[in-house]
């Protein structure tokens, strides 16, 4: 319990100056730091076709295993490929996979979560399935699915979605169940509104804050898990560099050419840290209730 609760009407002071959410977000340090970190990574990855010095797969045997230097800031790999290009292009793929997972989470997590949270009849069955899926350790489940479907980008996306959709659905279900009991939902019902209108007009718009927060974390987890899957050889085809694949490739030379694993590792860490900060900031501003009090 925080001291603000003791003040009796903690919301009052906040209500006196109702600044738009954007302004409050920009005043949140975590959010701004996260935005800068993640934004930088995302823009660089997006611009990869234009800013990479070389084709990421162009081999130049005479430049094998170059340490980071002025000419090759991130060094080169065993085939003399420029790591700057490979990390930039790898970021494209990693972020693309993350984005796909986020989108599938947004669609299926919302549909399943809303169905379970709103229609009591569906709640039991849907949540039992979700519980069953969530009973497996996330990475193990992803490995199982990826192994069953064979390595490809689609496989990774499907595997990670199966892992994270139940979690997103649970988050959404919880907020739907809270909003469902709000008086304005009762008022809509009393006005004669049907389930569709109540769900889409009243409930879902008010569940967006926790959903956005959740999706920012899913994005981060997806990028991490993609790296794990790729590292284990269950990711995208090895010719396409994703960060996970870069680390997997570099693993064999970790003693001689540590930069091959360190550089993509730092890229992943930066992205995930950025997304987590972003998510924390969003949560603090959009939905302070989700904050776990110390």
């Amino acid at each position: 319990m925080s001291a603000a609760d003791l003040a009796g009407r903690p919301g009052l002071l906040a209500r006196l100056t109702p600044g738009p959410a954007v302004r409050r977000l920009l005043r949140n340090r975590a959010f701004v730091a996260g935005l800068l970190l993640f934004g930088t990574v995302a823009i660089l990855a997006l611009l990869a076709p234009w800013i990479s010095p070389t084709d990421p797969n162009r081999m130049a045997v005479r430049f094998r295993f170059r340490e980071p230097s002025w000419d090759f800031p991130f060094g080169t790999d065993n085939l003399g490929r420029n790591m700057v290009s490979r990390v930039l292009w790898g970021g494209r793929l990693s972020l693309e996979i993350g984005l796909w997972v986020v989108m599938l989470n947004a669609v299926f997590g919302v549909v399943l979560g809303a169905a379970a949270g709103y229609f009591r009849r569906l709640d039991g069955p849907l949540m039992r399935i979700a519980d069953a899926l969530m009973a497996f350790p996330a990475v193990l489940l992803a490995i199982g699915i990826a192994a069953a479907l064979g390595p490809s980008v689609a496989t990774v996306v499907i595997a990670l979605s199966v892992v994270y959709v139940p979690r997103t659905a649970r988050v959404l279900r919880a907020s739907v169940m809270v909003v469902r009991e709000q008086d304005y939902v009762q008022a809509a019902r009393a006005a004669g509104a049907g389930d569709g209108r109540i769900l889409f007009r009243h409930i879902l718009p008010n569940c967006m804050a926790p959903l956005i927060v959740q999706l920012s974390f899913v994005f981060a987890y997806a990028i991490l898990s993609e790296a794990v899957l790729s590292f284990l050889g269950l990711g995208a085809a090895p010719t396409t560099p994703s960060w996970g694949i870069l680390i997997a490739e570099g693993r064999s030379y970790i003693r001689e050419a540590a930069w091959l694993t360190v550089v993509p590792g730092v890229a992943i860490a930066t992205t995930v840290l950025g997304l987590n900060l972003l998510g924390d900031g969003l949560r603090d501003v959009l939905d302070p209730r989700l904050k776990v009090d110390a």
């Binding site: 008086d183 008022a187 004669g192 008010n206």
Partner: peptide, 22 residues
């Protein structure tokens, strides 16, 4: 039932929870 709802309405207690903030 929807037609009936036209004739019967409700005012709630909590002025903050009764209006959709969006």
């Amino acid at each position: 039932l929807r037609r009936l709802r036209r004739s019967m309405q409700i005012v709630f207690q909590d002025p903050y929870g009764a209006l959709n903030p969006r």
